[in-house]
Design a protein around this nucleic acid. Structure first.
Lengths: 346, 346
DNA sequence: TTGTATGCGTTATCAA
DNA sequence: TTGATAACGCATACAA
């Protein structure tokens, strides 16, 4: 062990934290004088202030945000609940949230639901028990119960990426119907008529609306919906992979696929690679979300969508403005525009 | 507005939370009788208990974890600090952590550093101010200061994926040197002699050790290190993309690339696609981490590594065992094995 | 079996 | 300018 070795075995040893009382004692002042000095409050002499600051510095004082939170009844903490942290879409979303939240000196308690409504309820309960000031959530939408609980709790919350048509909540979503329309129309214009959709679960609003856009585009172009080309419940790459395999095995093959997300589309690429199907010649593919992963497939993936990171940022900003009173409390609904970015896959 | 409409405009309205005192009053008992009833403590009559539980239920009582934490001096919250939340490697890591943490009824406060040491320090300060019981961190390693601070704080912490050679800390890492060796040796056996490495920043231990393994394998096979084929600082897909472009533009092209991560390797695929370079004929590629994204490239990506999700789980488990006293406090160092999974790219 | 009183670390009120 | 005291919500030692 060299002399520079830092011994970091700790744990139950030095776990005692320095409190304000100790700082006050060390500085020879009362506890609340110390408090005022550290919080830049008026009514404290420069000399005293310097003494307190020095003592705090020397002892390594760190204000206890918990105690402060208890006092203020504000934790400066947000609960963030998403479907799956490892899903690139949600990763980007959370990244946007985290960045914005940090700017406001708030913290994030992150939880994943795996799209399970029981887990979702638990996550909400945990967040509320942690006294978060607000909640950002992509609801599983298996029922409206989550929103019901949140609503009754009185804790401000904002839905991200998904919304309930007949519930008056704040939300920030993509223009999913438009996205579905644009993607499908694009494929039609490229000459396709048998266009499959590997959609998400239909109880999720973004999936339902993209489907509506898909249908709308088909009808507008004199095409009928073929149930055999509609596959639901795809959320992950694995889902996309298996759905694509099933589709190709069947007798009624599509010439194009519109996937619920780039992540799902990646699964389609995997299946196509394995089966020797050439994209875009044998099969055109369009994804959703415009993630960077679409740049790495061969050929690169055509995708429609906005920026999930931006959506996260907006939702966080909205919530924080609500919390800090910078924004009136009327229901705010934001629908972000989507764009089609055509690349080699279609 | 239908009769089922839930009005969720809240915010500053109903934000008053139900406290234990109110439950006690509603049940007509004292505050601590209520406390004991709700916490399944002995010495409370069944009748009283039922009364309290009913009142709690009716009022929608939720115990305030903050107040409880203040009392216990334990928050049941862990700070998790990683380089970049949107990096698939870290996403998987965080996912593993979150899953394990939930099993123990702990919460996670997540922060990203963007590999910036100032942000890292801030993140640590925030976590400590939040009184987290422990910290899981992938240190930026620009200096040992982060570890110094953590060490002095007395808060247990565990390094993930990276470690300091001369510091006595808990850590869970991959066998990076072995990984570097295996990847390089594999490429050599496939007949390659000009093998480039798109490595991470050298101050990061995993990068340094993979490089050591790379060098070791070259030497063991009578090959010399060619500085022109060593590129450092690659962490993202973008980095891999630009590094690969630079490499292909130069006069001294490699016939194989060993990338720091699958994420970086994806960038290589993008560059290769754009330049019309055929993998694996013109260029072999090996990634690291064995993420599912490697399955979607064409051809699929050869990769070496263990499971980042597993690493996250182990680190979380280790920390929680430390915190709950289930594990002695001796320094625990875990090095997870790595495997080579050969696919089409090499 | 139940209730009273105290303390966790902070901040705010008010009096000195 | 400073300090004593109460309060935030909860849990517990102790008394009843």
């Amino acid at each position: 062990m060299g002399k520079d070795t830092i011994l970091c075995v700790n744990g139950n040893v030095n776990t005692k934290r320095v409190t304000l009382r100790e700082v006050a004692e060390a500085a020879g002042v009362s506890i609340n004088t110390a408090s005022r000095a550290l919080n830049d409050k008026p009514a404290v002499s420069p000399y005293t202030k310097a003494k307190v600051l020095e003592a705090a510095q020397r002892l390594g004082y760190r204000p206890n945000r918990l105690a402060r939170a208890l006092r203020y009844n504000k934790t400066k903490t947000l609960g963030v609940i998403v479907g799956d942290i490892a899903n690139p879409y949600f990763s980007m979303l959370v990244r946007g949230v985290e960045q914005t939240v940090r700017e406001f000196d708030y913290s994030v308690i992150l939880q994943g639901t795996d799209e399970d409504d029981r887990r979702e309820k638990e996550a909400i309960e945990v967040a509320l028990a942690e006294q978060v000031d607000g909640i950002l959530i992509t609801p599983t939408q298996r029922s409206a119960e989550a929103v019901q609980i949140l609503s009754e709790s009185g804790t401000p919350f904002i839905l991200m990426s998904r919304h309930f048509r007949d519930l008056e909540t704040h939300y920030v979503i993509m223009d999913d119907q438009r996205g579905g329309y644009v993607a499908t129309e694009h494929l039609i214009q490229r000459g396709h008529e048998r266009i499959a959709i590997l959609n998400g679960p239909p109880h999720i609003s973004s999936a339902a609306e993209r489907y509506a856009g898909y249908v709308e585009a088909l009808r507008a172009n004199g095409l009928e919906v073929d149930e055999r080309l509609v596959i639901e419940g795809c959320l992950t790459m694995e889902d996309g992979y298996h759905a694509a395999l099933r589709l190709f095995e069947g007798s009624h093959r599509p010439t194009a696929i519109f996937a619920f997300s780039d992540f799902v589309a990646l699964g389609v690429f995997r299946a196509a690679n394995e089966l020797g199907i050439t994209i875009p010649d044998d099969l055109a593919v369009v994804g959703f979300d415009n993630t960077i992963f679409g740049l790495c497939t061969r050929p690169p993936l055509t995708s429609v969508g906005g920026s999930p990171e931006e959506l996260g940022k907006m939702a966080a900003q909205l919530l924080l403005e609500l919390l800090t009173g910078k924004r009136p409390n009327a229901v705010t609904r934001i629908k972000l525009p989507v764009y089609l970015v055509q690349r080699g896959s279609s």
